[in-house]
Design a binder for these strands. Structure first.
Length: 831
DNA sequence: ACCTCTGGCTGGATAT
DNA sequence: ATATCCAGCCAG
């Protein structure tokens, strides 16, 4: 570990990460010097081990011999505020002054205390206790870090202008958030890395643990323009390695290749990979050890959580893009699978370099191109749209108070947990243990529709089947966050201890809400919502601003959206440390209440309600009545009802969550229909898309007859192709994800698992998370994995059935009869 | 091993 | 033959 001191450092440094040194137990910070683009490691003089709080007395703690014998433990009495009891409390902090005295490694105090099972609410990490926030700029002053928040005068005037009507407490909160979010952003140099390993045994999957096969190629792509592939010299025939868009360096031995790789990545503050946590970095590390690179020259650290770097920051984009919240809210569902290929195609519109042979059979030139292609793709994912992903990470750090690496690794519940814990610490609140909350609040009073769920969720209105022209869709703007905000929901305010609050009931439930104290979660969600709606959302589409500034606002806007959308669900999740079922239940109940009142009102106004789901209402109407409804909601529900879109027409069957609509801007929305699902064969998707294309052009009821004829033609065409086997096996393959390992399906054996087992019998490895491609075949099992299928075996009748049911979801409401088309088509074939 | 939630649809497997 | 369960994918 470096012993850099901050004495001679430049004025501004960005905090990127923090942790404990595994052997010394000393706290350290990783800061970026933006001018030199180097990481400065600061061994924090004030840093100490994690410590714990207890409601128990100091005396009891001191009497425990296991603690005192471990030595060097201090006890500190401190005043905290217990939110659940709504009163101050004296707690005891256990502090390790010297971690080596209690076992010699970081975290041992925590383990000790947990083993002892004391009445301990929570351990702390020093970085949060000090209030440091990763992603923020700092100034070093007299051996300490001073945050460089945004210009206070500017923020004050914004807050004054936009949030004048908010109560003081909310306004203070908003101001603090703005000071963080509007602070300077770092420019960070980065390098993307990808390695290739070739095994002499063709079926062997390279294991990073054993690292028995050589690293034959390492591709590096830097934000400073670096484009390089380091390759092991192998006798594969004379290939031309010039004329490539990157440079190639050949190495006689692997040791030198690895050393050069390490040298390069050490000169960048950020190293990005795709799945580097589980493959590239551990492989490099273990391989280096195997071929005799000295320890000190290997910058990679492999921990339980993933791989990191001694000096720099490692970003595994696989983990980040795998995160569901990121997928949906930050990247707008642009990709649906978690492979580099799928993410690249979805976000950038291009994928990996195509190869026809297995990697082991590529010549050097082909291998170099393939390898560099991956590094280039990772680089593009990190840097497209003016480093959008990197900026997003920085914003997520500022909101969650996690380090950049932890934002990548943890899910959204981890982000919210950390944010809430930080806010507790910052305010001197006691962090309750899960048992403490559940002792009083493990209560629900509604019955879920779906068997086995904990409480009742949203309402879905039965659609009016048929085709509807000129339909307006109204949407409650962030309904659940608004419910949390307006109804003061938080784990401490729902079913609070005060008798006088019991009358303040949540509709449809047995819960009451505190009337004396503002709930922490409500305050946070409310402020973040206000900031997003009043500042970042409008700024992100403000045409007067330069493109770059707009991008920044849109990044923050999206990051806020991720937090807001997840802030309801986590309270209903067992694993969440502040799990509180009545909070989740109340949120949903308030949502239902507002939703059904709006629908009642619409009907009262004489507006026809076609459909509705959770927070959206489909209305067949006139504009004036819509306006009236919106005004009514603002006045009576204190919620923003907005026009989301207007459909020229929508087609509904009797099914909920299933419809097709064409908006006034000619966009076709297909929701929930089989033809759009991921696992469906492309053959059926294409047929479906052809039909959708015909429907796009329908403008009036009169156009329908024409479209109907065209669709019948389309169907006949596809039917004919199927009947004459004019398709490839890929065309008719289903693609279904295995959520667990094949042997763990015990209750039933679904088709994709049958296919997976056949693959495994062939010696191929299949594991949880893999997407299995299979074809429906004739014969007893009815299924064959794509790799083993033969065209003659395809069960055409089954596909016909599937095609039929896919189309029927739309056709029966359009008055098209699939059966008759089938009849005509087979008649033609007959003659 | 992974994990924010509930509601709703589908086809195939399995029990009756 | 029919009902129910299981598993996957999707809407919000």
């Amino acid at each position: 570990m470096s012993t850099d001191t901050p004495r001679d450092q430049p004025r501004k440094l960005f905090l990127l990460s923090a942790g404990y040194n595994g052997t010394s137990g000393k706290a350290y910070l990783k800061l970026l010097d933006p001018r030199r683009q180097e990481i400065v490691i600061w061994n924090d003089p004030t840093g100490h081990q994690p410590f714990c709080y207890s409601r128990e007395s100091v005396e009891k703690l001191k009497q425990d011999e296991r603690l005192t014998q471990a030595g060097a433990i201090g006890f500190l009495r401190e005043s905290k505020f217990d939110l659940m009891e709504d009163k101050p409390i004296e707690v005891t902090k256990i502090v390790a002054s010297d971690p080596l005295a209690v076992g010699g490694r970081a975290g041992s105090i925590r383990e000790l205390v947990e083993a002892w099972e004391a009445d301990i609410p929570y351990h702390l990490n020093y970085i949060y206790d000090r209030g440091l926030v990763c992603g923020m700029p700092y100034r070093v002053q007299r051996n300490d870090l001073i945050p460089l928040v945004a210009d206070r005068k500017r923020i004050d005037s914004i807050v004054e202008e936009l949030f004048a009507k908010e109560p003081d407490e909310e306004r203070r909160e908003i101001r603090n958030w703005m000071l963080l979010l509007e602070a300077d952003q770092p420019e960070i140099k980065h390098v993307s890395l990808d390695i290739e390993v070739v095994s002499p045994v063709s079926t062997r999957v390279p294991s990073p643990g054993r690292a028995e096969d050589p690293v034959v190629s390492v591709a590096l792509r830097g934000s400073d323009g670096l484009k390089k592939v380091l390759m092991l010299k192998r006798d594969l025939g004379g290939e031309l390695l010039s004329g490539l868009p990157f440079t190639v360096q050949l190495y006689e031995n692997e040791k030198d290749l690895l050393k050069e790789t390490f040298n390069t990545i050490e000169s960048y503050p950020i190293v990005a990979t795709f799945n580097g946590d589980d493959f590239d970095l551990p492989y490099l590390r273990n391989r280096a050890e195997r071929v005799g690179v000295e320890r000190s020259a290997v910058p990679v650290l492999v921990g339980r959580q993933g791989a990191s770097l001694k000096r720099g920051i490692h970003l595994d984009l696989y983990r980040l893009f795998f995160n569901k919240s990121m997928q949906i809210y930050a990247f707008n569902n642009a990709y649906r699978e978690n492979t580099l290929e799928a993410v690249g195609q979805g976000i950038l519109g291009r994928g990996k370099v195509e190869i026809e042979k297995p990697i082991a059979q590529l010549n050097l030139r082909e291998l170099a191109c393939y390898n560099f292609g991956d590094a280039e793709l990772v680089h593009s994912l990190l840097s497209y749209h003016n480093d959008l992903v990197l900026r997003l990470l920085v914003v997520l750090c500022r909101i969650s108070k996690l380090t950049i690496e932890d934002v990548c690794r943890q899910g959204v519940s981890g982000w919210i947990k950390n944010l809430l814990f930080y806010e507790h610490r910052a305010r001197g609140y006691l962090i309750p243990r899960s048992e403490d909350i559940l002792k009083v609040k493990d209560v629900t009073s509604t019955k879920a529709i779906i068997e086995g769920k904990k409480y009742r969720g949203a309402i879905v209105v039965k659609p009016v089947p048929g085709m509807h022209f000129d339909v307006t869709v109204l949407d409650f703007a962030s309904l659940y966050p608004s419910a949390l905000k307006e109804w003061n929901l938080s784990y401490e305010t729902v079913r609070c201890p005060h008798l006088d609050c019991r009358g303040n009931r949540v509709p449809e439930t047995s819960h009451w809400i505190c009337t004396k104290r503002k709930g922490l979660q409500s305050l946070l969600v409310g402020s973040l919502r206000n900031i997003r709606v009043a500042w970042y959302k409008p700024k992100s589409s403000d045409e007067h601003l330069p493109e770059e500034t707009r991008t920044w606002y849109s990044v923050v806007q999206r990051a806020l959206k991720v937090f807001l959308n997840a802030s309801y669900g986590v309270f209903g999740a067992r694993i969440f440390p502040l799990y509180c079922p009545p909070v989740a239940e109340s949120t949903a109940a308030i949502g239902r209440h507002a939703f059904s009142r709006a629908i009642e009102k619409a009907r009262e106004l004489g507006v026809k309600v076609i459909y509705g789901d959770t927070d959206s209402i489909f209305l067949e109407t006139d504009k004036n009545l819509v306006r009236m409804l919106i005004d009514w909601a603002a006045r009576n529900l204190r919620l923003d009802l907005e026009i989301d879109k207007v459909y020229r027409y929508v087609v509904f069957s009797t099914r909920k969550k299933n419809y097709l609509g064409v908006t006034t801007s000619n966009v076709v929305d297909v929701k929930g229909l089989t033809g759009k699902k991921r696992h469906v064969p492309i053959f059926i998707k294409k047929a479906f898309d052809d039909m959708v294309e015909k429907l796009r052009n329908v403008r009036t009821p009169e156009d329908l007859a024409e479209a109907r004829r065209e669709i019948e033609d389309v169907l006949r065409d596809w039917y004919h192709k199927l009947n004459h086997r004019e398709f490839s096996l890929e065309d008719v393959s289903f693609h279904v994800m295995m959520s667990r390992a094949p042997e763990r399906y015990v209750k039933t054996t679904p088709q994709h698992v049958k296919a997976a087992r056949k693959l495994r019998d062939q010696g191929l490895s299949v594991s949880a998370g893999d997407i299995i491609s299979f074809v429906k075949t004739r014969g007893r099992e009815g299924v064959q994995p794509l790799q083993l299928a033969r065209k003659e075996d395809v069960d055409v009748d089954k596909y016909m059935e599937y095609l039929e049911s896919t189309f029927d979801q739309v056709l029966d409401t359009l008055g098209i009869n699939f059966k008759s088309i089938k009849g005509i088509s087979s008649l033609e074939d007959f003659f």
